[in-house]
């Protein structure tokens, strides 16, 4: 993925006026913040061969609840708490349905999507909720050393989740479960419990992403998640996280998100029509994921060949 990103970055900055301007770079970073947080959670779910369709709806619903709470109390910290609490609640709902009742993740999270989105619409009458505390709006505009605060938050969380995935026993158990749940159970992983925890974490992250959404846009929207869902899954998949579990990671999904954001901003500057952009993104998703699969297969066959070669040498040595 890295070479593709570098190539796109070089092409755009060489050909497009203002692509590397501070303003545009800050714009790209701001756009990334919500997606980075949400895609981290989604990646964990995809790694255990699940899927969370409710991610966008949870973002929207959490933002609405958080906005009401803030407008009531005037306190931003209450807003954060409410957003996270909503995320935890819906994460538990998904987790119980999937880990305990063994419902298919696609259906369970789709049900959560419908209900969370509809309740948000009911609460707001479909309108977006504004009038947020000034500190939230100012926070969304704040740059530290030129880097938007929302991006620092988003990147920080992504790095944390990435570290958890690659450096802890829990992370290893996730990969193991995704690759082969039976083998994981055999080696002592409590698969239902792990599944529950993964959906809980994903829900929590989505809830918090709802708060960052408010910081970025300055309001809460019950339908905020409608366009986000496909962007998030597209980013994960484009980055090389597989839908069949066990393959992928936070860095890959994040780079997928980066690529999509860089592209749409670049195409916007070029003045490309949005239907042309849709075609480009469609082709990119298909070709990108095919490339990912092809590369990983080549890597696997190479390592097999290596292993074969080593075995062969050992054999020679023995003879």
């Amino acid at each position: 993925m890295l070479p593709v990103i570098v190539l796109v970055a070089l092409t755009f900055s060489a050909t497009l006026d203002g692509y590397t301007s501070v303003f545009n770079l800050q714009n790209i970073m701001q756009q990334l913040s919500v997606i980075l947080i949400a895609v981290s959670g989604e990646t964990l779910v995809l790694l255990i061969c699940g899927i969370d369709l409710s991610v966008g709806a949870v973002i929207g619903f959490a933002s609405v609840c958080g906005a009401y709470a803030m407008n009531l109390t005037g306190s931003a910290s209450v807003g954060v708490l409410v957003c996270v609490a909503v995320g935890v609640g819906l994460g538990v709902l998904n987790g119980v349905g999937i880990a305990v009742f063994r419902l298919e993740p696609f259906i369970m999270t789709f049900g959560t999507l419908l209900i969370a989105r509809a309740v948000g619409l009911l609460m707001t009458g479909g309108m977006s909720v504004g009038g947020l505390p000034k500190i939230v709006l100012d926070g969304g505009e704040l740059n530290l050393l030129g880097v938007p605060l929302v991006f620092i938050i988003g990147l920080g969380i992504t790095v944390l989740v990435g570290l958890m995935l690659s450096c802890t026993v829990f992370g290893q158990a996730i990969y193991l479960t995704g690759a082969n749940p039976r083998a994981a159970a055999f080696s002592g992983v409590d698969v239902p419990r792990l599944t529950f925890r993964v959906y809980l974490i994903a829900g929590t992250l989505s809830g918090f992403a709802g708060f960052v959404f408010m910081m970025h846009l300055g309001d809460a929207e019950p339908t905020a998640g409608d366009p986000l869902l496909l962007q998030i899954i597209g980013a994960a998949v484009l980055g090389g996280t597989s839908l069949t579990g066990g393959e992928g990671g936070i860095a890959r999904s994040a780079s997928g998100a980066l690529l999509i954001t860089m592209l749409t901003t670049g195409l916007d500057i070029m003045g490309a029509q949005f239907w042309d952009q849709m075609i480009v993104i469609g082709v990119l998703i298909a070709v990108g994921s095919a490339l990912g699969i092809w590369l990983s297969q080549r890597r696997m066959s190479e390592s097999k060949a290596d292993a074969g070669a080593i075995a062969g040498r050992d054999h020679e040595g023995a003879s």
Binding site: L230, I233, F274, W275, M278, G282, I285, A286, S289, I293
Partner: peptide, 18 residues
């Protein structure tokens, strides 16, 4: 392309409407 059905139809979801 040997890609997953959800990905393939996600790609055409964008491309067809565009």
């Amino acid at each position: 392309l040997r890609i997953n059905a959800l990905i393939a139809t996600l790609a055409t979801f964008f491309a067809f409407r565009g």
